[in-house]
């Protein structure tokens, strides 16, 4: 089983590196009751550890599709992991069935829309796409 993860990991490494230059921010539904999240809180929410917002709401994270370069940038900046590693991580958790990975958005727009429309939702996009419908709760420091 582990061997399969390792293979997967190796395949992931073959993918072209995401554009590191993209400025990804974490956005949340404005009604979520939070203004700012700590980096650990972001990690806990997105990596399934603790999915509750400081306001008490259940946090509903959403991921961009892997085709979007912002996803890779986000995870590298957040936990310094490649997407393959994140996938492998989730593969193991999914296997146990207790924690599920973040909701998979179709694309940037879809994600922003879903965050805007869902209380407690939380996601990440390029700063340029963060409009008024969502609230930026965490920024990777420049």
């Amino acid at each position: 089983m582990m061997r399969r993860y390792l293979l997967l990991l190796a395949l992931c490494a073959l993918l072209p590196p995401p554009d590191a230059a993209a400025d990804v921010v974490v956005i949340a539904n404005p009604r979520a009751g939070v203004d700012r999240l700590s980096r650990d809180e972001v990690v806990n929410i997105f990596l399934g550890r603790f999915r509750q917002l400081p306001s008490g709401l259940s946090a509903l994270p959403a991921d961009l599709p892997s085709s979007q370069p912002e996803k890779a940038v986000f995870y590298r900046q957040l936990v310094n992991k490649e997407l393959a590693e994140i996938n492998a991580y989730w593969a193991r958790l999914v296997f146990s069935g207790r924690t599920v990975p973040p909701r998979q958005a179709v694309g940037n727009d879809d994600l922003v829309s879903w965050v805007a429309g869902t209380q407690g939702a939380i996601g990440y996009v390029d700063r340029a796409r963060a409009d008024g419908r969502v609230k930026i709760v965490y920024e990777f420091s420049p």
Binding site: L47, R49, R92, L93, F95, S96, G97, R98, T99
Partner: peptide, 8 residues
């Protein structure tokens, strides 16, 4: 341990 996943 990270996610406190007993099953895992």
């Amino acid at each position: 341990c990270f996610v406190q996943d007993e099953s895992l």
